[in-house]
Design a protein around this nucleic acid. Structure first.
Lengths: 254, 254
DNA sequence: ACCTTACGACAACACCATTGACGTGTAAAT
DNA sequence: ATTTACACGTCAATGGTGTTGTCGTAAGGT
């Protein structure tokens, strides 16, 4: 097989398609995102994307080696959008909360791409910028580095994992999606108290709570726990182990 | 369309296939799990499952209305395996930790299937039993019901989300898996301290920590935060929110 | 021994991603 | 201004997918 994909920088000849569209990497990514957001996750196929572009489906392979490459590009775009126009405030807790919710929201807005991308490490520009920012927030809060790293890991994976989890629900075919939601009333609502006392006792609360995402509360709990592990700042107390904060650089930059 | 599926209880005629296999719901689920664990998630298609069963693919539709119904059965089977042989100890914290780690482990042991199943609500026996157990653990710890429900939601979704996240990594094609791991050295290791000071400062710790799962620590943080919200038992004190219980237990690690 | 019908098999449909071959129009080179 | 090269859009084909309508047969109840 001859390599069909030419890197975007090396492109010269922009021949219009039969229907008059002029393709580009950027235009394909945007069309794909629009397609998914307008017609649902199922609408994203190479064939339909071709149709939406006004081009033969196979033309897409001149820009992306396969659909996986295309989806990674969509994901990178999503990471970028999650960070767009955000600046750290200096309050580590508020900052982490904002970052977490932004990642979550951004991925949820494009479930299909989120599903494929949430568990990959791309190493692209948007990703490294996000990593740098989060590490900066944690370090400027004076957590010791070994703790910073573990907290970073837990925080990011939790954001991505929940994003993927919730995106997966949104990406389900309509029917399956509704079926899952219905289960809480249809099945759990009918379990007898004799065999399932705790479900019976909490059912209304439960069915209601399960409609939304568990992430915001899980995030809050994580922030609580992080705060509890914050080394004392001015008070000399503590001394439990060797994890005192050392004075360090400002650490933060977007 | 006539309904093709007959409920398992009403089955009488077990006609063997041409190749001599006698089908059943149970046997199909087990074959599907084996297929997936041996040959990867991509190996699970109706046609291949039919071949593995020694039956025509369409015969499967006599047992499951569609592939989604089959997936739900796989999911419930995994939940069941996670609970096998476990009993609550009465220590809510130890119990939740055990449940979380068991779910995580069970899904990881069958990554391909977990990926397909981790985000579905099945409403089946194994699932309801798990829900009942977890609610019971939280309620017996004396959390008020509205809090129990939110904690249940956060806890379960966290376990499933991380399970799916880590399963996804394990399920990647060998090449992509190694490529992702490599990124931490190849890309992050080469970022200049000038533009990415925090990454540069923590890189060795970071690259090391990112090799494992972030779940055990994230779980520990969640348990910490839950403990901090435990209503005071004998002491009348109360400050409703925030950071009481700052210096609680050492909050061990995996 | 006879019916009934459950259920396995077959064939067909519509969709999917991907690829090799082809020819045309663009942009660079002369 | 003309030629040339090749980028890239198009076509056609391959081999996959889930799903369904139809049919025949053998298993079970009677």
């Amino acid at each position: 097989m001859v390599e069909r994909v030419v890197p975007e920088s090396g492109r010269r000849r922009r021949r219009p398609t039969k229907q008059g569209a002029v393709l580009s990497e950027r235009m394909i990514v945007e069309t794909a995102l629009r397609l998914v957001s307008q017609h649902g996750a199922e609408a994203l196929s190479v064939r339909r994307l071709g149709a939406a572009l006004g081009a033969d489906p196979s033309a897409i392979y001149r820009y992306f080696r396969n659909t996986d490459a295309l989806l990674l590009s969509l994901a990178d775009e999503l990471i970028g959008r999650a960070q767009e126009g955000w600046e750290p405030t200096g309050d580590w807790r508020a900052d982490l909360r904002a970052i977490g919710l932004r990642i979550h929201a951004s991925y949820r807005s494009n479930p299909q791409a989120a599903l494929l991308a949430a568990h990959r490490t791309t190493g692209r520009a948007h990703e490294t910028r996000a990593v740098e920012t989060i590490l900066g927030v944690l370090r400027s809060a004076n957590f010791p580095d070994p703790l910073v790293v573990r907290m970073y890991h837990a925080f990011v994976d939790q954001a991505l994992a929940f994003a993927a989890q919730d995106a997966a629900a949104l990406a389900l075919p309509q029917a399956a999606h509704e079926a899952d939601a219905e289960v809480w009333h249809a099945v759990y609502g009918k379990l007898p108290a004799a065999t399932h006392p705790n479900i019976a006792a909490t059912l209304p609360l439960l069915a209601d709570d399960m409609r939304g995402s568990g992430y915001p509360f899980a995030l809050e709990l994580m922030l609580d726990a992080m705060a509890a592990r914050l080394p004392a700042t001015s008070v000399p107390a503590d001394g439990s182990r060797d994890r005192r904060a050392r004075a360090r650089r400002p650490a933060n930059r977007a």
